[in-house]
Simulated assay, not measured.
Amino acid sequence: MYLAYRLVASPFLFLLDLTENLDGFKWVFPSSFLSDALDGYFARKYKVIRYWGNGWTPLPIS
């Protein structure tokens, strides 16, 4: 679910930034952050590790 949101939100954020639509950008960007934070929280809480996803993570998981 989170991956689908990120795949949709990334080009949308790029387009909002490119067109300087800051009103839209300031709502979509924090929701993307919240999505990432929730994903990380639940992954750590339930000890879910997807090795495919490790390549997409900017920081190493210890």
Rank of each mutant, 00 (worst) to 15 (best):
M1K: 06
M1N: 07
M1D: 11
M1S: 10
Y2F: 05
Y2D: 04
Y2E: 06
L3W: 10
L3G: 01
Y5V: 02
R6H: 05
S10F: 10
P11M: 11
F12V: 01
F12P: 00
F14Y: 14
L15W: 14
L15C: 08
D17K: 15
D17A: 15
L18W: 14
T19D: 00
E20Y: 15
E20I: 12
E20T: 15
N21G: 06
L22P: 00
L22H: 13
L22E: 11
D23F: 09
D23A: 13
D23I: 09
G24P: 01
F25E: 04
F25D: 02
F25R: 11
F25W: 13
W27F: 09
W27K: 11
F29L: 11
F29P: 00
F29K: 07
F29W: 05
P30E: 02
P30I: 01
S31I: 01
S32L: 12
S32V: 10
L34W: 02
L34V: 05
D36H: 12
L38G: 09
D39Y: 14
D39G: 06
G40Y: 08
A43S: 14
A43D: 15
R44S: 10
R44Y: 10
R44W: 10
K45V: 08
K45Y: 14
K47W: 05
V48M: 10
I49S: 06
I49Q: 06
R50H: 09
Y51W: 05
Y51A: 01
W52C: 01
G53A: 09
G53W: 06
G53D: 07
G55V: 04
T57M: 09
L59D: 02
L59R: 12
I61W: 05
S62A: 15
